[in-house]
Amino acid sequence: MPASTDIAAQGLSARAVGCERGGRALFESIDLAVSPGAALFLVGPNGSGKTTLLRALAGLTEPAAGEVRWNGRDAALRSAVWRMQLTYAGHKPGHKDELSVAENLELACDLDGGQVGAAERAQALQRVGLARRAALQVKRLSQGQKQRLTLARLSLSRRKLWLLDEPTAALDSDARVLLGDILRAHLARGGVALVATHDRIDLPAGQTAELRLGGA
């Protein structure tokens, strides 16, 4: 494909990325390019490889083939430099059930390395509607509230590339609007987002594109 040779100088681009799972090729020759301030939605049926593609870009899974570039340079997917560009929110949120909401958010912010203060964390919890549950153990939260905690983490992350896997799962309509707001703020900062989703997330036109995986 001639389009695949046109690699964007800024943002994320990938060429001919292929992944396999259990010896079977999930997808071959995926090309994508997302410029700063834009979001790419990954859509496709279950099992089409959305999660695997996100994990491959996060450096958690080794892609079988292909090349990923970040701002025009080869992104060494397993390097420290690369992993500090990105935030990954997968199916497994990484919350500890025994710790409180506030403690979980603090640990996540420490890992993120963004030097976020206690006041900002409290504000983020307020924003996602968990302020009154800050001292509650995470195991007492509902699925949707746990997902809201992930939103709080995202809203505090200043990393450039967000890889979100089904972020709308278990969210109510208010929280979906909130997710849209958080994503918009991220894009406005010049961030890049790849979002695997079955739902529409309301983002300004011209900033989004769609990549269909699997089937036809």
């Binding site: 990954y88 199916h91 497994k92 949120p93 990484g94």
Partner: peptide
């Protein structure tokens, strides 16, 4: 619970 993935991606 996915904590190890987040630790791998931490700074």
């Amino acid at each position: 619970d996915g904590s190890l993935e987040q630790m791998l991606l931490g700074h």
